[in-house]
Design a binder for these strands. Structure first.
Lengths: 251, 251
DNA sequence: CGCCCACTTGATTAATATCAAATACTGTGG
DNA sequence: CCACAGTATTTGATATTAATCAAGTGGGCG
C-alpha cells in the first residue's frame, strides 16, 4: 500500500477509487541523501512535500549554532502542509543519517483530491491535527520530564507511530537517528544523551544503535515515560455521520 | 472593533460586510471566573470557542501533578479550532488570574462564514498556522534557551502579539499571570522564576507584577532572548492573487 | 486580627552541561 | 586487505544551572 494511504488509513477506510486517486497524486518523487537539508527556497509555494520512504526531521536553528528538532517525520507524513499561506518559512526540514524519498504535489492536485473526495480532505486535516497534538506533547516533554522519562517518551511515541503504519517489525523499528540528533530533539547535551541511553539499556528497556531501536520492555518503558497514547489519536476513525472538520468546508 | 476581526486583520483587510458577518457570529458569549477550567466535556463537538476578552491558557497536566502551559491565548484567539475532528481532547483550557469572556460558535455558523467569505476562511487558516508556529517556537524555547533567555523570549512574544492587536498600552501590557504560571509555561520551578525575574528587573529590562508587564528596554530584551519575530508571521498579509491555503479548499 | 496566598530569600542538593580525552566504527584510497 | 581519516560513541572530571527544602515577608480581605 502507498505510504500516504497507509498513514491516512489510521483515520479512515478508503475505497479503492480513493486509494488509487491518492496513489496517483504522489508520482513525482525524488531522493535526498543523508543529513541533507531539503531545500525549499526555490520551490514555488504551490507545492507540498510528502515523505514516502525513510525519515526526516523538522528543525529550527538559533543564530549561535544551537538547534532544536521539532518533529520526526516518518513515511506517509506531510512535510509542509500549510506553510504556503505564510510568506516566510520559520524552520527547515532535513533528512537524518539515511536517505529519504519525497513526493512533490502541486497545490492544484491537492485541491482536486480534496474537492472530489471529502473523506480525503478530512483525513489530511486529521493528519495536521495529529501533528499539532504531537507538538504539544513535545512541549510537555522538554518542559516537564527529566532526562530518562523524556527519552523514554520519545521512544514510545516513535514506536507507536511506526507501528500504526506497519513499520514496526515486532518491537524493532528503523530509527536512523544518532545521539546528537536525540540531543537536538530532547534538548539535552550529547553526553547526557549517551548516559541516559545507558540507563535505559541497563534497565533492559531498549536496545538502540545501528539505526535501529528495539523496545525490549514496552510496558516498562511506558511506565517510566508516563506515556499515554491518547494524544496520538491513533484510534480516531472517520465515520459517515461524523461532525467533520472545524475548519469549515463546503456542505 | 470586534476582537476577532482585529486579530484576523493582522492577516487580511476585510470589507465592512465581512466585518459585520464576523461580528454577528460571535454573539453567544459567556464569562468565566479567574483560575477556572473552561469545561468542554458537556459541549457538543460542533462548537468552537473564541476568547473575546481577557487571557486564557492551554495546558496539559501529568498524572503526578506536574502541569505544562502550552500556549497563552489573548483576545481574538480561537480556542479549539480543529479539536472537533478528534474523538478525545488531549489538553484543557483555563483562565488565568482574571476572568475572561468567551464566545461559543456553532460548526454550522463557521462553515457558513467560510463558504460565503473565502477571505475569512483563509484568515482562520492563517490563524491556526500562526498558532502552530508559536508552538514550534515554544519547543525551541524550553529545549534550548536557558532561564533568562527563555523568560525574555516569552515576554517578547506576548508583547508583540498583544501589540499586533492593539492591546499594548505603550510598552505596558496586561498580563494576569502569576509566577507559578510562568513556571508552568517555561518549565521552571517557581523559585527559579522568581530569581530570573529579579535578574531581568535588575538589568532594567522589564517591570512585572500586579497583572501587568512593562517592557522597559525592548531592544535589550530581544537581544537577550535572541528574539526574531518572523515566526509570529505578523506581517503576512492576504492579497487577491495569493496562492491560498494548502489545505485544499473549493475553487 | 488573622489567614491565605503570592512572593522572596537562603541553604543545600540534584540534574545536567561542559571540557577533555579515549575508544570504537565506517568508509575510502592504496 | 590494510592504513587512515573522519565520525560517532563512551568515559571521567569538573562546573554550572536549576530544583528542592525550608522559612520568612507582605499584602488583601473576611
Amino acid at each position: 500500500m502507498h505510504p500516504v494511504v497507509r498513514k491516512l488509513s489510521i483515520y479512515a477506510t478508503f475505497s479503492s477509487e480513493e486509494e488509487s486517486a491518492l496513489g496517483l497524486a504522489f508520482t513525482q518523487t525524488f531522493e535526498v541523501g543523508p543529513k541533507t537539508p531539503v531545500v525549499f527556497q526555490d520551490d514555488p509555494p504551490q507545492t507540498t512535500l510528502f515523505l514516502l520512504k525513510g525519515f526526516a526531521s523538522r528543525r529550527k536553528a538559533l543564530s549561535d549554532g544551537r538547534d532544536q528538532i521539532l518533529a520526526f517525520m516518518i513515511a506517509g507524513d506531510a512535510c509542509d502542509m500549510g506553510v504556503a499561506l505564510l510568506e516566510k518559512r520559520d524552520h527547515g526540514i532535513s533528512t537524518l543519517s539515511t536517505s529519504a524519498v519525497f513526493a512533490r504535489v502541486s497545490q492544484d492536485a491537492l485541491r482536486h483530491l480534496a474537492d472530489q473526495y471529502p473523506k480525503i480532505r478530512d483525513a489530511f486535516y486529521w493528519a495536521t491535527l495529529m501533528e499539532e497534538s504531537i507538538g504539544r506533547e513535545w512541549i510537555v516533554n522538554v518542559g516537564q520530564r527529566h532526562a530518562a522519562e523524556r527519552m523514554a517518551h520519545l521512544f514510545c511515541e516513535l514506536y507507536h507511530r511506526l507501528n500504526a503504519v506497519g513499520l514496526a517489525n515486532g518491537h524493532n523499528v528503523e530509527f536512523p537517528v544518532i545521539q546528537q540528533d536525540l540531543g537536538a530533539a530532547l534538548g539535552m547535551s550529547t553526553v547526557h544523551i549517551n548516559r541516559t541511553l545507558q540507563l535505559l539499556r541497563d534497565r533492559g528497556l531498549i536496545a538502540f544503535g545501528d539505526h535501529r531501536l528495539t523496545i525490549l520492555d514496552l510496558p516498562g518503558l511506558e511506565r517510566l515515560a508516563g506515556f499515554d497514547d491518547t494524544y496520538l489519536h491513533i484510534r480516531a476513525r472517520y465515520n459517515a455521520g461524523h461532525a467533520g472538520s472545524v475548519l469549515p468546508r463546503p456542505a
